[in-house]
Amino acid sequence: MIVHEWTSESADQHEEGRRLGAHWAPQLLAARDSYLRLFLQSGVSAEKARSIADECRAMTETHAPDVAEEFHGVAEGSGLALSDVHLLTARTEILARMTPSMECSTVVYVPDDATPPRTLQTWDWHETLSNETIVRRLHSASGARVVTFSEFGQPAKIGVNDRGLGLHFNILHHRSDGSRAGVPVHVLARMILDRARTVAEAVEISRSVPLAASSVLTVVSFDGTTPEAAAVEVSPAGVAVLSAPRGRTLAHTNHFLDETLAAGEYSPYETTSVPRYRCLTDAGELARIVDDRERALAFGAIPDAPISVRARPEQPEHLRWETKLTVALDVVHGALAFAAAAPADVAVAEWRRVGMADQHVPAER
């Protein structure tokens, strides 16, 4: 997977969307075509996908007008229809109605001293999709500076801001998914990164908007003295918050941990969510490692660890998942550290660091 970098020049959301769309038009067009193919393989026609995207568009314009303005710019710059830009943003909401997907393992250690949380996540997605992705440095309309990794066409996924807050992102599946129109979960992630300073503020934002699909946003923050973290499970049925005590490790994969929401769990396919969760909790001490690359290497060295997901060639194309990224957050310096590889492959992959104003400088292997 190729991870591109892009830096915004101002807080003018429309203009920055236009710049991004014009520069990355081929990638955006390819992403649209790839997702329309996946939707069709999953039993969702292009007409149905666009209908769901239009519902999400209306909710985005109501609850996140700054992000909606960026989408207008992306459409203008790229030449894509505005409905296609919203289709890419709403891919989780579209798939939630037909084909639940397996995605991501996250672990966070919350120190009991005045040091920041230590985090690590894998991003697992379809083998044939999103083989070009992007890390964006952007200026939000609120004045915050944000660094976020995402697929092309999404406003955010995994990221940090310059206010001491960071966010990891895992998909979940609930029987209430698709029961109403809602703000796309990737727009919610951007809203949190744009606006929040604390875990409590991130929770408040999560509770403030209607949602059409489920995810867990593992939010971490550090004010220079106190580290905090919580897994915020969101779904159309409600929001649950699982806070991490000081000196403890918090892990999350792709099943609900809140008992009430877990009663509505939905997953028709074989999943490795529970084995991956147990792997993270059993090896929780490794999350204490201070250096982010060493932390990734330690988890990657666990023999036969299920958190390094490998594509299974015997599965249909739309059911083949693999680990595409291993990433850690630095909420002190506002940076992402990552390798475009599974944890088991970090030792032979380039470990990169992208901060608020950094240029791309490869780290040593």
Score class of each variant (00 low, 15 high):
1 M>C: 05
2 I>T: 14
2 I>G: 00
3 V>I: 15
7 T>R: 15
10 S>R: 06
16 E>T: 08
25 A>F: 03
31 A>E: 10
35 Y>D: 08
38 L>T: 15
45 S>H: 04
60 T>M: 13
64 A>G: 08
66 D>W: 07
71 F>L: 12
72 H>L: 13
75 A>P: 01
78 S>C: 03
81 A>Q: 13
84 D>Y: 09
97 R>C: 14
98 M>H: 15
99 T>M: 13
108 V>M: 08
113 D>L: 07
115 T>K: 04
115 T>S: 15
116 P>F: 07
119 T>G: 05
125 W>D: 11
127 E>D: 12
127 E>K: 14
128 T>D: 11
129 L>A: 12
130 S>V: 10
136 R>P: 04
137 R>C: 10
141 A>M: 02
154 Q>L: 15
157 K>N: 14
160 V>N: 11
172 L>H: 10
172 L>N: 07
180 R>L: 04
182 G>K: 04
187 V>P: 02
188 L>E: 02
190 R>T: 01
194 D>G: 03
202 A>I: 03
203 V>P: 03
210 P>W: 02
211 L>C: 08
224 G>W: 11
227 P>G: 05
228 E>D: 14
241 V>M: 01
255 H>P: 00
257 L>C: 10
260 T>K: 13
265 E>M: 05
267 S>L: 12
269 Y>H: 14
276 R>D: 00
279 C>E: 09
280 L>R: 10
282 D>T: 15
284 G>I: 06
286 L>H: 08
292 D>W: 00
319 L>E: 11
323 T>C: 07
325 L>M: 13
342 A>E: 08
344 A>I: 03
344 A>R: 10
351 W>L: 07
353 R>S: 12
353 R>N: 03
355 G>R: 13
358 D>P: 10
359 Q>L: 09
